[in-house]
Write a protein that binds this DNA or RNA. Structure first.
Lengths: 227, 227
DNA sequence: CCCGAACTGTCAGCACTCTGTCAGTTTTCT
DNA sequence: AGAAAACTGACAGAGTGCTGACAGTTCGGG
């Protein structure tokens, strides 16, 4: 899961980064509205945490522009305490949730997860796809109920496939979601992780549609003949 | 275990701090309602002791706001003697227990411990996780029934893992619960304590999920290959 | 008041795991 | 058959976690 954090207070930004990372997100930090607009409009995030009070370009404006441009990433707004107007305006502008400052990290993480799940169309933290079970909270994967030990990167990949179980995910998209805008990696890196995952999970879990990408068998995305 | 004490009478606050520290808590003091609201809403405590009669912001209001914000820490209220209304209101507002002033420190400690245990989903003062037994009341740990002498900090760590036996706890979270908001410590401090604990408890008690965190073997969180 | 013991954080070095790349192979499609 | 796409085993650099040594602090006893 890839997250963009737009926050100019360094202290809070660092806390957010730490907590989201621990929750399994790939975090990218941005400190001003103009950069935020650019990044959110260009890149593809699973979650955006947006502080409204920003230098250079107001957070609400940024959000409105994103939505106007067709960006559909779930946005979690951070508002100053008791700023009702901000809240209402934020939701008008297309925010999916808001959290008044100060807040507790656990709550932010909980809401972040809820947003990601909702965006994926599923309400549950643990997902069953065929023989595979993925638990986003515990960051574990199991086959037929037997836990499989996966590394952090492997888990990010399998979790992403689980959230997108209803479609085939192109390897370029996986690359982007695993490494963010750090494009120093070859496409083959994804293939390597897939291979390692297959070795651990067994055959018949991750399917390939040549020319399109990967998907989970037992999800709603695989083809007739490709099983 | 991390505790927040909200009390404006200095004398009592000091007594509370001393007693709770002796009982193995990491104590943070706050003297007025507004600060209390902020801290309780932001940080994550295993226990909150709340005096109702506070400057700046009434204790009941603080409690209600915490609950509204999703704070689930167990709260122990201190009320003036015979103030029945306060008691009822407090429980309505989401308090978990109350104690009329004046009270005996022993009683407060006993109730505090009970609350922490209950919050961990278990009513028992002593917990069994695999070969390990942790006794919250007596601050002792044993392996196969044989007592192991642990230092205060070591106990805080093992107790936290015991309460969170169903998941893998990231080292950053341990750092937070061991030292509170004093972030002057390196992550390596946690690793050092883990090493010392392992030397005392023997192998196969504290497990590592590289890249994720630590957990107790025999809890409900460990993986297949990592045993 | 001084001494020693216990406790705890930091440092530095070590070992192991993780992960990206390369190169060579296999599979699939035309 | 040929080309493109995907797979996989091997390798190496980077990163993470572990541990022994050391030093500052605290606390209790003499």
């Amino acid at each position: 899961m890839r997250a963009l954090v737009v926050e100019d207070e360094l202290r809070i930004a660092a806390d957010l980064e730490r907590a989201l990372k621990a929750a399994g997100f790939l975090v990218e930090l941005v400190a001003d509205g103009e950069t935020a607009w650019f990044r959110g409009g260009t890149e593809n995030y699973d979650l955006i945490v947006l502080d409204l009070n920003l230098p250079r370009l107001d957070g609400l404006t940024v959000l409105k522009r994103w939505r106007a441009e067709g960006c559909e990433s779930p946005v979690l707004i951070l508002t100053a305490r008791g700023a009702w107007t901000e809240r209402v305006e934020g939701i008008d502008a297309g925010a999916d949730d808001y959290l008044p400052k100060p807040f507790r990290m656990e709550e932010l993480i909980a809401r972040a997860r809820a947003l990601v799940r909702r965006a994926g169309g599923r309400g549950n933290a643990t997902q069953q796809i065929g023989r595979l079970t993925v638990d986003i909270n515990r960051m574990t994967a199991s086959i037929d109920g037997i836990p499989v030990s996966v590394t952090p990167l492997e888990f990010r990949l399998i979790a992403y496939l689980a959230v997108n179980r209803d479609r085939t995910v192109p390897p370029t998209e996986l690359l982007e979601h695993l490494y963010g805008d750090d494009d120093s990696r070859e496409l083959n890196a994804v293939e390597a992780i897939i291979t390692r995952l297959r070795r651990k999970l067994g055959a018949g879990v991750i399917g390939t549609r040549r020319g399109f990408g990967y998907h989970l068998e037992g999800g709603e995305a695989q083809m007739q003949g490709s099983a």
